[in-house]
Every structure is written in C-alpha cells, then in structure tokens.
Deep mutational scan, measured.
Amino acid sequence: MQRVNMIMAESPGLITICLLGYLLSAECTVFLDHENANKILNRPKRYNSGKLEEFVQGNLERECMEEKCSFEEAREVFENTERTTEFWKQYVDGDQCESNPCLNGGSCKDDINSYECWCPFGFEGKNCELDVTCNIKNGRCEQFCKNSADNKVVCSCTEGYRLAENQKSCEPAVPFPCGRVSVSQTSKLTRAETVFPDVDYVNSTEAETILDNITQSTQSFNDFTRVVGGEDAKPGQFPWQVVLNGKVDAFCGGSIVNEKWIVTAAHCVETGVKITVVAGEHNIEETEHTEQKRNVIRIIPHHNYNAAINKYNHDIALLELDEPLVLNSYVTPICIADKEYTNIFLKFGSGYVSGWGRVFHKGRSALVLQYLRVPLVDRATCLRSTKFTIYNNMFCAGFHEGGRDSCQGDSGGPHVTEVEGTSFLTGIISWGEECAMKGKYGIYTKVSRYVNWIKEKTKLT
C-alpha cells in the first residue's frame, strides 16, 4: 500500500490518463441519441435557420407576430419608411378606419389613436360632414345658397324668414311668412316636400332668348283662358290664391305678392273693366268669414305684352289694390325667389296649380277651390304637342294621358313649387288646347323671366 501511494504521488498524470480511459469505455446513459432527441424537440425550422439574422431580410411573422416588435424591426421587413409607417399605425392600436367614419364618399386613412378623412370636392370637416359648395344638395341650405369668396357655403332665406341657429334652416321672422300653410287642420295635408338634388348652379339658368321682337298675326285659340281631375282644397291650404270678379264672377285667378299687390295673367284683364279681388276665398257660393274683398285701382301688364300681336306672350300683369290686405292664416303671400332659384325650383319637376275653373272641358265651374299636382314636361315634348308657338318664356306641365289639367277660369292662378315646406311661385296658368285632352298640356308663363320686374313694381313704400 505504501508503494502504491508513492507511485500516485510521483505520477499524477498517469492516474488522470487511467481515469479518462475508464470513462470513455463506459456506456453513456444520461444523453439520448440524435434521433430520439429530435422526437422530443420537434420544432419547425425557421426561415433563416442556421444563418445569422443580421444578414437576412426581415420576416413579418418572425419579427412582429411571434413577439412584439419595434418600429426598427418592422422597418427591416418593409425596407421602406412609408410602408412601415402605414403598417405601424394599425399594428400599434388597430384600424381606426374600420367603422368607416368618413361621410359623403370620403376616404379614410388610419393613424395612431386617430384617423384622417380625405374629402371629395365640396366637403370638409373631420368626417367630411361639412358642405362647402352650393353645387351639392344646395349646400344643405333649406332655401338659398351662395358661395363666399373663400368658396364656403353661405345660406340665406327669402323675405319674412331668418336663418336658424344651425345656419342652414329657415324659420319665420314674421307672423305670416310667405308660402307657408298655417291653418292647423290643413298642415297635415301639406304636399310632399321637395329635397334639393345635386345641381350645376353655374349652368342652372337656361341660355334662352326671349323672342321679344317676333311679330306674329293673332292666333285663334280655343278655350285658351284655361282644375280638371283635381281635388277639393281645404280652407287655408292655398292662402296665396285669390279669385278675380268682373263682368262675371271667378273669371280668373291670381296670387298675393304682398298686402297691396296681386300677380295674374295679362290676358285676364281689360282696361276700363272694374275688377274686384277676393282673398281668403274657399267656396265661392258661401260666406265663410275668411274672405277679404278689395278693388283694383291700377293694372300693370308687362311692358312687352301686346294682345294685338299675341294674347299669351309675356302673359303676366300686376294688380294694385285700393287697401292693403290683412295677412292671416287664410290670406298669405306666395314666396318669389330670384331668377336663378325660381328656375331651379321649376326644374324640380312638379308643381301645384289651383283655381275655381271648370271641372271638365266646357263644363261647370268649381264651387270649392280645386288643386292638382302636375309634372313638368320637357321642352321637346311640349313643342311636338301643339302647332302653336311655345315661346321661351312659357313652359308645359300636365299629363300625356289627359284627364287632369287646369281649365277655363283658372287662368292667372299660381303654379307653385314647394321647397322644404315653403311654396314659391314658378308659373302662372296661361293657356292650353281644350282641357285635359290626351297628348295636350297646360301652358304656363315662366315666372323666372319676370321676377325682377315683379319685385321692382310691387315694392311697398
């Protein structure tokens, strides 16, 4: 034993070699072989497995989906700052455009905790909710729209109204504003409101030439003092309507412009014939205590009207009353817009006519005020429907199939267009061939041609 100890002390290297040989010859039971080890760690190889990531292109799944990435790591994937920024906006807080917040056709661009709407022409605001041009839906104005110097929408209202708090709607500024039905039992019968379409306001006024200088022999019209197929109006439903009495009662109609003036057809009036105007009328054979009678003290036909040349060209006249009318729910003026808007309103496509005229061709006159909704007829169809001249200051309205029309005794009465609950004068009943005849239409004086003249002559002093 002493000898062994001496050998170990003198030859430590020998001992180490012996131990190493023993270990190498022993069977290893701690580690699995290569094949079995792979069965336990069965993990798919990654895209760049075996390579240094710093030297390969980034992978979106590896960089940002398996674990949260930084902007720089995302930049490695896209290799483009702009594309990385677009991805980053949604990656950080989701897609803010998912709810489609942009209105009126706006395009949404996502941002971090926010979004941006790219608005089409005519709109602005956070969600493109603000109209900035009158060309689109009248700028959301209830009545009139004008573009300011910086191309912003400025709404306005006709006389007797003021802008509401929203700067879009119009509200009454006087007790009985024009064009409004205020009798409670008839307010439910107000005709369907007309909503502004998209309009090209630059070209809204037709490029028409008034044929002022045409000389033409007097034409022989049949029954051209021209509501057939209409309905009984309720008291106060058309408070701007008046009836004219002269040699015979209810020979023509008219509309209240203001307390002192009536507008009617020029062919209705004769110099030297006494005319009485009755406002607030409903049943011409009954006294309903809503009527107001006034005498006409002055007749002003349009300066281009000449019955000797043509009885229905420039067929418009103004009547001055001896005493002002007292405005109330049964006696209310009709609204008159400017030339541009009167023309736009007419193009809405349908209007209402009213009167006490004959209820059928050569038949009896109506006792109760009649009204009828009539569609506008395109000019080409209008011209083809008659052998008589249709001037540019006239328009056609009615039904091709016949059966409904204005008729004798309705002449001078109103053709009105309702705009968001307020009625505007767009025409004056003038003439036609018979009444409600198939293929024939009622012919009306186009008020847009005469609004400046009306307003100039009827100013209240």
Rank of each mutant, 00 (worst) to 15 (best):
V92R: 14
P177W: 01
E286C: 05
R43L: 10
V181T: 15
R46C: 05
I7A: 15
H415K: 01
K126L: 14
I17W: 13
P44Y: 10
G253L: 06
T461E: 15
G363Q: 12
L460P: 13
Q216F: 08
S329P: 14
G125S: 04
T271K: 03
N245P: 01
G160I: 00
R62K: 08
S114M: 05
I334C: 02
S204M: 12
V326N: 08
C268R: 00
V331G: 00
V296D: 01
G432R: 13
W240Q: 00
D95P: 12
T209H: 12
S411K: 12
S187M: 12
V183C: 04
Y450D: 01
V269N: 00
A266L: 02
C178T: 00
E323L: 09
N138S: 07
T190F: 08
V368K: 11
G122P: 13
R404I: 14
S107A: 11
V296T: 02
T133K: 15
V326P: 01
I262D: 00
I316P: 00
N328D: 10
A173Y: 11
R140D: 13
E72D: 15
G421M: 05
V181M: 12
V447W: 01
Q185N: 14
N343V: 04
T422D: 00
I428Q: 03
P44H: 08
C170P: 00
H302W: 08
Q57C: 04
W118G: 04
A279R: 01
Q57V: 10
L60V: 15
Y47C: 04
F144K: 01
N313Q: 11
G253V: 12
F395T: 02
A9V: 12
N38K: 13
I297G: 02
E10H: 15
R373T: 13
K39T: 10
R384Q: 14
E231F: 06
A164T: 09
E193D: 12
I17E: 01
V278I: 05
G403E: 15
N245W: 02
V447P: 03
V242P: 00
N203F: 05
G357V: 15
P333G: 03
V248Q: 08
N393P: 02
C128A: 02
F176M: 05
E73F: 04
F348P: 01
C102D: 00
S365I: 13
T389R: 11
G355V: 11
D232S: 11
Q57H: 10
Y161Q: 02
A9R: 15
T389A: 11
D322F: 00
V368F: 07
V4S: 14
K457N: 15
R379Q: 14
C69P: 04
G160F: 02
S255I: 07
V374Q: 05
S204T: 10
R62C: 04
C141T: 00
F424C: 00
G13Y: 10
F348K: 06
R180S: 04
G105M: 10
S148G: 07
N306E: 05
F144V: 01
V228C: 10
E159D: 11
F424I: 00
G351M: 02
I40P: 15
C117H: 02
G349P: 04
G94Y: 05
G421W: 03
I297V: 09
A149C: 08
K440N: 15
V183F: 09
N36W: 06
P172T: 06
Y115I: 03
L369S: 13
Y450Q: 00
T209W: 09
L460N: 08
G13T: 12
C128N: 02
T215K: 06
K126I: 11
N147S: 12
L103R: 08
N38G: 15
V228F: 08
W261R: 00
S114D: 14
S11Q: 07
C117Q: 01
E281K: 11
P120W: 03
G179K: 00
S411H: 10
A265V: 03
K293I: 07
L163N: 03
S169F: 07
E285R: 09
E259W: 03
R180D: 01
A308S: 13
L20A: 04
I284E: 05
G13R: 05
T389H: 08
A9Q: 13
P324F: 03
Y312E: 03
N393D: 07
R379H: 10
N104S: 05
R298C: 02
I443Y: 06
G403W: 14
D95Y: 13
A207S: 11
I429V: 13
K39G: 12
L20P: 01
V242T: 03
I336M: 07
K438Y: 08
Q96C: 06
D405R: 14
H267Q: 04
F399Y: 13
V77F: 06
E116H: 11
F71S: 12
I390V: 13
T218H: 08
L60Q: 13
K274M: 08
L376W: 05
T264F: 01
L19M: 06
G246L: 03
S187P: 11
Q216K: 05
N5L: 13
D322L: 01
E124V: 14
R83H: 15
S329T: 07
Y161F: 09
E116Y: 11
D378A: 07
R43E: 11
T81C: 04
G272E: 02
F123G: 03
D95H: 14
V153E: 06
H289G: 13
F424E: 02
S430W: 03
G246Q: 04
H314L: 00
G427A: 02
L244N: 01
G409W: 07
T426S: 03
E98Q: 13
N295T: 04
H303I: 06
G50I: 09
T461I: 08
Y91D: 07
S220H: 07
E323F: 08
S220F: 07
D150N: 12
C108K: 02
G253P: 07
M394F: 12
A233W: 07
V419R: 06
V183M: 08
G403D: 15
E116M: 15
S217N: 11
L130S: 14
A207Y: 12
P172M: 05
K339E: 10
Q408R: 11
G280D: 01
G106I: 02
R294P: 01
P44M: 09
C268T: 01
T271M: 10
E288D: 13
F395N: 02
K188N: 10
R3W: 09
G398A: 05
A366P: 14
P12E: 06
R3L: 12
R3Q: 06
N343D: 15
T271E: 03
A192P: 05
D410H: 14
E66P: 07
F424G: 01
E53W: 06
D131N: 15
V199C: 06
F360G: 11
L346C: 02
N306V: 07
I309D: 09
T29H: 10
E10K: 14
H282M: 07
I275N: 03
G427Y: 01
T215N: 08
I297C: 02
A173S: 13
S385C: 12
E76W: 05
Y115V: 04
N100V: 07
I454S: 01
E76N: 13
G13S: 13
K45M: 07
E340M: 09
E86L: 15
Y391F: 13
I40L: 11
R180F: 04
V153R: 14
L19W: 06
S182P: 06
T422V: 08
T426G: 00
N452P: 14
S156V: 06
V174F: 05
C252L: 00
K152M: 13
S148F: 07
I15M: 08
V174P: 01
D212K: 08
C18S: 07
V228G: 05
D198W: 12
T16I: 07
G409F: 12
H361L: 12
F55C: 05
Q96W: 12
N245D: 06
T186Y: 09
V56H: 11
L367D: 09
K126W: 08
K152Y: 10
C252A: 01
F221M: 09
S25H: 04
D95M: 08
K459R: 09
